[in-house]
Simulated assay, not measured.
Amino acid sequence: MGEVGGRAGQLRSSGLRHGWTTGACATAATKAAYRALLTGEFPDPVEIVLPKGQRPAFALAVEGVTEGAGGRRAMAGVVKDAGDDPDVTHGALVRSTVWAGEPGAGVVFRAGPGVGTVTKAGLPLAVGEPAVNPVPRQLIREVVAEVAAECGGSGDVVVEISVDNGEEIARSTWNPRLGILGGLSILGTTGVVVPYSCSAWIDSIRRGVDVARAAGRTHVAGCTGSTSEKVAVAVHGLPEDALLDMGDFAGAVLKYLKRHPVPRLTIAGGFAKLSKLAAGHLDLHSARSQVDKGYLARLAREGGADEELTAAVAAANTALEAIQLCRAAGVPLGDLVAEAARATALGVLVGSPVAVDVICVDRAGTIVGRAEPLGP
């Protein structure tokens, strides 16, 4: 279903073009490299089968065979096409270098330049392993077996995955915080990148919870951005591996913590975003939820605002203006929003032993609302 070159133009959703994961690219590169190792010829394009049956074909961007003291090695590379998703790895060159391994060893994975190594417990890979996730590993094993059967190979190979400039790209990801050092992770559960699904971000939130739990953390903070994260650290003194870069995905944090609880959760964020959570929204992105100033006006009235102030809040241009009006009048709108946001969170966490507190901040990082811990 894919186009030559890995372009996924035939897989569309709402007019947006799907792309392929780094795991799919690494699988295609491995298949081409192993065939070249056995036959001397690189298939180009190279087709693979993904877990849901798609059969994309990838053009090779680079290829080569070398002879050295360690024996013959073949390398192939594919440029990642993330489709219309704003993926930081879009355009990255994913390489696979393959050479003969020890008899009976099967497929042994190595992290080449630009691919990280796991250094913390709690991830789906053991400490010391290359950051090539379980599904890409299985896909790679399958293509190695396929090529071995077709070309008379043993299937005992070392597969080294690398990504050009991967270490630099990884600085824009969660990897350093998760303890994946030296580069990117080779990701993908379906092989397909769905535009704006932000599946990689949500997966990173889940892995962040896993790492915090494995480290024995009893208190984590889900923060909407760097400003609120700094406030959460200042207030609670939390270590880096207890911080979850929640962004707009409050629902992802809460739903995963419901299944994998940590005793205490702090939710810290900008007042406007947390007003959306207070109103019951779990996705805080501006394209999917809006600040409801009528709701803020009702909260203000419950907090003691007179009719004039209530009307002014309802007519405010921004959430910031609404909180400024209420603060000037001594109406605790920030605390009311924090309490309502805590109630929304506890509604998702119901039945799970997680206590929740909420901190609302303005753009300067000043705390404008608090709700103290309240258990399920």
Rank of each mutant, 00 (worst) to 15 (best):
L38C: 07
L50S: 01
L299S: 01
C151S: 14
C198K: 14
A29P: 10
C326R: 03
V158T: 08
T97P: 06
P43H: 09
R288Y: 15
V253K: 00
R301T: 10
E302I: 12
D87V: 04
E307V: 10
G304P: 02
A316L: 15
E321Y: 05
I161E: 07
A329E: 12
G9I: 11
D81H: 07
L187R: 01
A24D: 03
T266E: 06
A105Y: 09
A287E: 15
P239R: 06
W174E: 04
V235H: 12
R327H: 11
Q138H: 14
M75A: 15
G155M: 05
A272G: 13
E67N: 12
I202F: 07
T266G: 08
A100S: 15
A242Y: 02
A314N: 06
S154G: 07
V331H: 06
P134A: 01
G216V: 04
E168T: 14
G19P: 00
G128H: 05
T117E: 11
R217L: 09
G15Q: 12
A121M: 05
H260Q: 13
G101L: 10
A74E: 06
A74W: 02
S228C: 03
T66L: 14
W201Y: 14
K255P: 02
A322D: 00
A126W: 02
S289Q: 11
G334R: 00
L238W: 13
Q290L: 15
A364L: 13
E339R: 09
A329N: 10
R12K: 11
G112I: 01
R264N: 11
V143N: 05
V361K: 01
G15A: 11
C223S: 13
L37P: 05
G294C: 08
A69K: 12
G91E: 12
L277G: 07
I202D: 12
A214W: 00
A252Q: 02
E308L: 13
R72A: 13
C25R: 02
L139V: 05
S275K: 05
A343E: 13
A319F: 09
P51N: 05
C151N: 14
R298G: 10
T66P: 11
A312C: 05
G106F: 11
L325V: 08
D245R: 15
V88S: 10
I180C: 03
P86C: 03
G153R: 08
C223Q: 12
A338D: 07
G153Y: 08
P134V: 00
L16N: 08
G116N: 01
I161N: 03
M1V: 13
D335I: 04
A82E: 06
V127G: 00
G191L: 08
L184E: 04
R301I: 08
P176T: 02
G112E: 01
P86S: 03
V147Y: 02
L181T: 14
S275R: 10
R217W: 05
A111I: 03
G114P: 11
A170C: 09
A355S: 13
I180Q: 00
D306L: 06
D203Q: 14
R141L: 13
G153E: 12
A69F: 12
L16F: 12
A28L: 02
A234N: 11
L284G: 07
T310G: 15
L374K: 15
